[in-house]
Amino acid sequence: MARTTVRWLLAALYLTAGIFHVARPQPFLGITPHWVPWPVTVILLTGLAELAAVPALLQPWSRPLRRAAGIGLAVYAVCVYPANVNHMLIDLAKPDHGLGLAYHVPRLLAQPDVVWAALWAGEAIDWPFGRRRAQKA
Rank of each mutant, 00 (worst) to 15 (best):
W120F: 05
R3Y: 01
A93W: 06
P55F: 07
D113F: 15
P25W: 15
T16R: 12
Y81P: 02
G100C: 10
A110P: 04
T32D: 02
Q135A: 15
G18M: 10
Q111M: 11
P37Q: 09
L15R: 00
P39E: 07
T32V: 03
R107Q: 09
R7K: 11
A93P: 02
H34I: 01
E123D: 14
A77M: 07
P60F: 00
I43N: 12
T46W: 12
C79K: 01
I43F: 08
H97Y: 14
I43G: 00
V78Q: 06
Y76G: 14
L57Q: 05
L29K: 05
V80S: 04
L119D: 01
V105I: 15
A2L: 15
L108Y: 14
H104S: 10
P27A: 10
P25R: 11
G122F: 06
A134Q: 11
A137C: 07
A23T: 12
A2P: 09
R67G: 00
A52F: 10
A118N: 12
N86A: 12
A118F: 06
V85S: 00
F129C: 03
A83H: 02
A69M: 07
A102Q: 13
I43S: 03
A83N: 07
T5C: 07
A93C: 04
A83G: 05
A68F: 15
D126G: 11
P82G: 08
T16E: 11
E50N: 12
R7L: 03
L15H: 03
Y81E: 08
A110C: 07
H87M: 15
P37G: 11
A49Y: 13
T46R: 10
A124I: 02
G98I: 04
L101T: 07
A102S: 15
A68C: 14
A12E: 03
H97F: 13
F20S: 11
L119H: 01
G100A: 09
S62N: 12
